[in-house]
Simulated scan of single mutants.
Amino acid sequence: MNWSIDNLSPQRACHSSTCTEITETDIKASMLASADYALSMLEESIHDDALYCLFEWSDEQSLLSISVTDHSKTNDGKHTVKVHFKGIKQAAIEEQTETIKFWLRDHLTTSADFMKFSLVAGFSRDGRQTVELM
C-alpha cells in the first residue's frame, strides 16, 4: 500500500491510504496489512493515559481508522492510520462490519507488535461513543 503522511503537528501524524481491491480475499489482506502498519508504530503512539488500540469502522465512508487513545477517547497517540476501502461494497461481504471485526480480532491474537503492550483492543462502528472489546 502507498501511504501519505500528513504531519498535523510535531506530536501528531495521520497516515492515509486507499485500497481499491474488490474481492473479499484482497480486501482482507489489505486490511490486515494496514493493521500491521499501525501496530508497528504503537510504541511511538503510547502515552501515559493510553488505554485502547482503537479500530474504528465507518460503514458509510468505508473507512478504517486505527489509533491509540485514552479512556475518554479524546487524547489520541502520535500516529493515526486511515484507510479508505473504495471497492468494499463491490465485494458484497456478508455481515460486513462483523466480518471486519472478526478479521481484526483474529489477527491481533498473533500480532507480536500488539502483544508487546498492555492495551485493550477496541472496535467502534460509526463513532467513538460505544467501543466493543475485541
Rank of each mutant, 00 (worst) to 15 (best):
E60Q: 03
T80Q: 10
S4G: 07
D76N: 11
E43D: 13
E44W: 01
S17K: 08
D59Q: 13
H84Y: 09
T80E: 13
P10E: 13
D70A: 09
S72N: 15
E43P: 00
I27V: 04
S4I: 10
T25F: 04
L63D: 08
H79L: 03
D126Q: 07
A33T: 12
D126G: 09
N7Y: 15
S67P: 02
L108K: 00
E132V: 04
R12F: 14
K73R: 15
K78F: 11
M31E: 00
R12E: 15
M1W: 02
Y37C: 13
I88Q: 02
W3S: 03
K89P: 01
N75L: 11
D48V: 03
H84G: 00
L133Q: 10
L42Y: 11
S118H: 10
D49Q: 07
I88H: 09
E21G: 01
S124D: 07
S45T: 10
S17A: 15
G77N: 01
L51G: 03
T80W: 05
S17V: 02
G77M: 02
K86Y: 07
R125L: 11
K73Q: 13
I66R: 13
A50F: 02
D76W: 12
L104M: 14
D76G: 07
S62V: 01
A35D: 04
E95I: 01
L133M: 06
A121R: 00
L54F: 01
E44H: 04
C19S: 15
R12S: 15
E94M: 06
M41Y: 01
D106V: 04
A33G: 05
P10N: 12
E44D: 15
W57H: 09
